[in-house]
Design a protein around this nucleic acid. Structure first.
Length: 828
RNA sequence: CGGCGAGUGGUGAAAUUGGCAACCACGCCCGCCUCAGAAGCGGGUGCGCGAAAGCGUUUGUCGGUUCAAGUCCGACCUCGCCGACCA
């Protein structure tokens, strides 16, 4: 028995991390002729400490990066920090810590922890978005967008979060609540900066059709968010009032069923009506005021549909009927035209509203068979056949839509239009810890961008955080400046940019992170872009992933970048990591830290567990028991392979070894099965390394069994398997792999070796198990060499007692033979 | 309310095109080794009947297609995620 030398993961793992860093083996070169592969995990916010939930994400990305490197790609795998944001500023308000200090300390700690996980990042490309080196280019981009009319300032009703004390983009309001703190969002009219993402809607939609490597779910969410709908906009005259109301509808075929018109309280026509209808003024204004005091959440989610009549009537241009105009709470001023035709019979909302206010319900669509007739129990919203619709009676909905649209157009009253739900991206934030908006306001010249040579506009240091008002607006040394155009007194924009600006182009900055002349060099970025594999959670489906697509289109349009205007060719959504039934997070207090986990079990064991426990897209339950199995695996590999490291190299890897018997064949086969699994899980982009690690278990089980045989150390198959073991382990247990490899006498890291291509000869099996079924049920298994003929198989099957017992007294009606798999005998 | 996804042993899970359900691991049981075992090695483990051979049965429920269904089709149930007054 050889002396027990347990594997000291603590010492080994640390030593290899230091050596990889010293040798720079993960540094990607721009001039490397091999095909490029850009793999990226969404950049983290430096919140303080990493936990094993982060490790799940980075371990997968790292395995993908490592296996691609070994399969002959020039891999770039960078890491950085999404360093601006509210938590830093809240720490400043609550604990008096400077946001920059807080952030940089967190980054330092997390850098250490990311290295501790043995990840193969190219640290020469590291960036932090809160550094002036980075955010000056946010400002530069902003000015470029301003020049092209894509950044503009306007007063508009915006979402205001009273807790975070800032405005929010529409994308950052979830169910009427702030995406970050959950507070009910309020409506305010404020002058704010917007980026004109709506100019790109059609491209953002069309681009999705090409993104075959994206989950369908994410694409659907983006399509729904963009919310394209095609319909008709037409105008109605208002009786006795010098005004028209424009309404947008996707169901112009139901226009004869209009029994009222509903408008938002903010709609301009309301004021005009009230001039002529003074009796309604009190009622309408009280109603509007009652809505104003409500948050957006209450107004849209919790309140039932209600409204008041304005006293005015609109004329249906087709039926010439007069219908009352109501001010309601359920029509949104910001969508469509802020007014809708009320068709209770064929729209659920209108139906509810009509029921509540006793408005007539006029059915104009029936089922294709014509059986559906009033009174309706509920709105009939399907397409169907028109009734009670003048000359259009009997038409199908789709045809009627075309005919009525054409008629309205001929009357000069309407046209087909396309409406989108997406709004321009509101980027101003009334907070300190972000990129200052590089604009100044001059009495003489108005809004003036800061010239490029004066960028960056630096965040002032030593600012006081009171939690009241914008820190930049309160700081005269920041606010007061001179106009770049006339030299007169001017004030700076007091706001900072949404931090989603930072993450909208960082993937391009990684490709030229030290550039001081421009955001990045055209050739360098174009060489590596787009990202081949992007990895991250699904929570950014309509935030970061939409903004980054928009930004990339802008970069391509402005000539900064060549090639695809989609930044991420493939997107992989990692599943959550759950602990004690909840998502692991600091705020929930259910965090399993990286430091303690690595210390207790070792990095390789942790990585192997995170990969093995479930497919990467699945939710993973963290348990301490599961990882014990991987600790055992690491030790088992060590005990099996380490004693043979001195002799393993005597059997080369560039061809199969001589195989003396079935046991040898099975061992070599297990190795090639594992190689094959790693290859195919990577090529199919399933990344189900949980399967590949199971094959590694089988390989090591085979090896352990082989080593029990006398003379195993001299067996070429055993030596070959041990020699190849570090290669197949490398992407998953990189430290263990390199330690074994170096003990075999190699100077160069195993991570610079080529993955061995699985050999069909090694994968072939000596004997197959032919399943014999009678009437679809397994009755026997026959061991036979592959390629057995049907008749021979049948003859063998008819010698099996268990088969004969089933056929006894019956006639064989049919035989189904699947070569090398199965013989099904149908008997009756 | 709508969209999408998922339901397989005690647990995490596996299963090219429909072709042996449950690889691998955790847990549990038995044995070996041991002063000792939260170490290591070996064996067993879906459920039911049986000493065994074997027989029956099993992928949320019900039905269908097929020689053959976890996989395809239809209806339903449950859970999860996401979106929800968008005209």
């Amino acid at each position: 028995m050889p002396e027990e030398r347990p594997y000291d993961y603590r010492a080994v793992e640390r030593a290899w991390q230091e050596r990889w860093e010293r040798d720079g083996i993960y540094v990607a070169r721009d001039d490397d002729p091999r095909p490029k592969y850009y793999v990226l995990e969404m950049l983290p916010y430096p919140s303080g400490d990493l936990h094993v939930g982060h490790a799940k994400n980075y371990t997968l990305g790292d395995a993908v990066a490592r296996i691609h490197r070994m399969r002959g790609y020039n891999v770039v795998h960078p890491m950085g920090w999404d360093a601006f944001g509210l938590p830093a500023e809240n720490a400043a308000i609550q604990r008096g810590i400077d946001p920059e200090t807080w952030t940089l300390e967190n980054i330092r700690n997390m850098q250490r922890q990311v290295r501790l996980m043995g990840t193969s990042y190219d640290w020469t490309r590291e960036l932090a978005t809160s550094l002036p080196d980075y955010y000056r280019w946010n400002q530069w981009f902003f000015v470029r967008m301003f020049e092209r009319g894509l950044a503009y300032k306007r007063e508009a009703p915006v979402n205001w979060c009273p807790v975070d004390r800032t405005v929010l983009a529409n994308e950052q309001v979830e169910n009427g609540k702030c995406w970050r703190c959950g507070a009910a969002v309020e409506r305010r009219n404020l002058a704010q900066w917007f980026l004109k993402i709506t100019d790109y809607v059609e491209r953002l939609l069309r681009g999705l059709d090409r993104l075959d490597g994206w989950p369908e779910r994410i694409k659907t969410m983006q399509r729904n968010w963009i919310g394209k709908s095609e319909g008709v906009t037409f105008s109605l005259d208002v009786e006795n009032v010098e005004a028209q109301i424009e309404v947008f509808t996707t169901r112009i075929d139901t226009v004869f069923g209009m029994t009222f018109v509903a408008v938002a309280p903010e709609h301009p026509v309301v004021a005009k009506i009230l001039e002529r209808m003074p009796k309604s003024r009190k009622r309408v204004e009280e109603f509007a005021d009652s809505l104003k005091s409500k948050s957006e959440l209450e107004r849209t989610q919790l309140m039932e549909k209600t409204g008041v009549p304005t006293g005015a009537y609109a004329i249906n241009p087709l039926s010439r009927e007069r219908v009352p105009i109501w001010v309601t709470n359920y029509v949104l001023a910001e969508y469509g035209t802020g007014a809708v035709m009320g068709v209770p019979a064929h729209d659920e909302r209108d139906f509810d509203f009509a029921k509540k206010h006793a408005l007539p319900i006029a059915q104009v669509i029936t089922t294709p068979d014509g059986t559906l007739r009033a009174p309706l129990e509920a709105a009939y919203v399907e397409n169907g056949k028109l009734i009670a619709s003048g000359e259009y009676i009997g038409m199908k909905s789709a045809n009627a839509r075309r005919a009525i649209a054409a008629r309205l157009e001929a009357m000069g009253r309407g046209k087909t239009t396309v409406s989108y739900r997406i709004r321009d991206w509101l980027v101003s934030r009334q907070r300190y810890w972000g990129t200052p908006i590089p604009m100044v306001y001059c009495e003489h010249d108005g809004i003036v961008p800061v010239p490029d040579e004066q960028l960056p506009v630096l965040l002032p240091k030593g600012v006081k955080f009171t939690g009241q008002g914008s820190p930049l607006a309160n700081d005269p040394s920041f606010s007061n400046t001179t106009c770049p155009r006339c030299g007169g007194a001017a004030i700076r924009d007091p706001d900072t940019m949404d931090t989603f600006v930072d993450s909208s182009w960082y993937f391009a900055r990684y490709l030229d992170p030290k550039n001081t002349e421009k955001p990045f060099d055209h050739a360098k970025a174009s060489r590596w872009m787009p990202v081949d594999q992007y990895i991250g959670g699904a929570e950014h489906a309509v935030l970061h992933l939409l903004y980054a697509r928009f930004w990339t289109m802008f970069m391509v349009d402005s000539g900064m970048l060549s090639g695809d205007d989609e930044p991420f060719t493939r997107l992989f959504n990692q599943g959550l990591l759950i602990y004690n039934g909840e998502k692991m997070s600091k705020s929930k207090g259910n965090v399993v830290g990286i430091d303690e986990t690595v210390d207790r079990f070792g990095v390789d064991a942790m990585r192997l567990f995170l990969l093995k426990a479930a497919p990467p897209e699945d939710t993973l339950d963290w348990t301490d028991e599961g990882i014990i199995g991987r600790v055992r695996f690491v030790q088992r590999v060590w005990r099996a392979a380490e004693p043979l490291t001195g002799v393993a190299r005597t059997v080369p890897l560039d061809r199969l070894p001589e195989l003396r018997g079935d046991a040898q064949r099975e061992l070599v086969r297990a190795l090639h099965v594992a190689l094959d699994s790693g290859k195919s899980e990577t090529e199919t982009r399933r990344f189900h390394y949980n399967v590949t690690t199971a094959k590694l278990d089988e390989l090591v089980n085979q090896l352990t069994a082989a080593l029990r045989e006398p003379g195993a150390a001299d067996d070429p198959a055993v030596r070959y398997a041990v020699h190849a073991l570090p290669i197949v382990l490398a992407p998953f247990a990189p430290h263990l792999a390199d330690e074994l490899w170096s003990r075999m006498g190699y100077e160069r890291s195993v991570h610079l070796e080529r993955w061995i291509d699985p050999d069909p000869a090694a994968l072939a099996v000596g004997e197959i198990t032919l399943v014999v079924q009678v009437n679809g049920k397994v009755r026997a298994r026959i061991q036979t060499p592959p390629g057995i003929a049907e008749d021979d198989a049948f003859a063998l099957a008819m010698r099996e007692p268990t088969v004969l017992a089933q056929i006894d007294g019956k006639q064989v009606r049919k035989r189904i033979f699947v070569a090398d798999k199965l013989l099904n005998i149908v008997a009756a």
